[in-house]
């Protein structure tokens, strides 16, 4: 069976993701050693916290080059979750560091057109699927509900990278995609049956 590396750069909900992969029948290890990365078939990039801290931690741990090789040269599947998704983009208004830039998108502070809403966007919300061909949407339910916690959101520069949008005081791009690179703003590892299907699909890629 293929093995998934959950990248440990000191930030993120690693155990939840590992629990979910085990629950859905996959195999994974938590990896913080860049040298071991080539032995893995897929990567999950988790993340909770601030953009610049994350990028700096990745660099300090020597993971920056290894991840670039994994994603761009080896073209193996990479799934970014929450902040991990934002790291796939060019840059973020939250910081000054550059992101991986694997997906042509920028991260902006959530702009709410409804004064009764507050940030962070915290709670359950639905995905509006923009591209049914996205491989992780296989066998998913008509209404997909996911748990969100974030104050910044992704805006893709190219329509083709948008797999789903979500409405919270305006639409943002909640699921993004560029070939082997995939990102979820929400937390599939915390979204019971809806999330389980996403992980199942990722495991079966």
């Amino acid at each position: 069976m293929q093995t998934i590396a959950i990248i440990d750069y000191g930030m993120g909900n690693l155990a939840s993701i590992a629990n979910m992969i085990k629950k859905t029948g996959g195999k994974c290890n938590i990896v913080n050693n860049a040298g071991l990365l080539p032995m893995y078939d897929k990567v999950i990039l988790p993340g909770v916290g601030a953009f610049d801290t994350a990028i700096n931690n990745i660099k300090i741990n020597g993971l920056w080059d290894a991840l670039n090789k994994f994603a761009l040269e080896d073209k193996k599947p990479v799934l970014g979750i929450c902040l991990g998704m934002q790291l796939l983009c060019n840059q973020s208004e939250e910081g000054v560091e550059k992101g991986f830039g694997w997906i042509d998108a920028d991260v902006r502070k959530l702009q709410l057109n409804n004064s009764s809403l507050r940030t962070p966007h915290m709670g359950w919300n639905t995905l509006h699927v923009q591209n049914k061909a996205f491989p992780l949407f296989k066998n998913t339910e008509a209404e997909q509900r996911f748990y969100f916690v974030h104050s910044y959101a992704v805006a893709c520069n190219k329509q083709e990278n948008i797999a789903a949008t979500t409405n919270y005081g305006g639409h943002f791009h909640s699921v993004i995609w560029n070939h082997n690179i995939m990102g979820f703003q929400c937390h599939p590892e915390k979204s019971h049956k809806f999330g389980m299907q996403i992980f199942k699909n990722f495991i079966e890629l």
Partner: peptide
């Protein structure tokens, strides 16, 4: 707490 979280597939 770890035993509790390993059973929680929700926030």
């Amino acid at each position: 707490i770890e035993r509790l979280t390993s059973e929680a597939f929700m926030p």
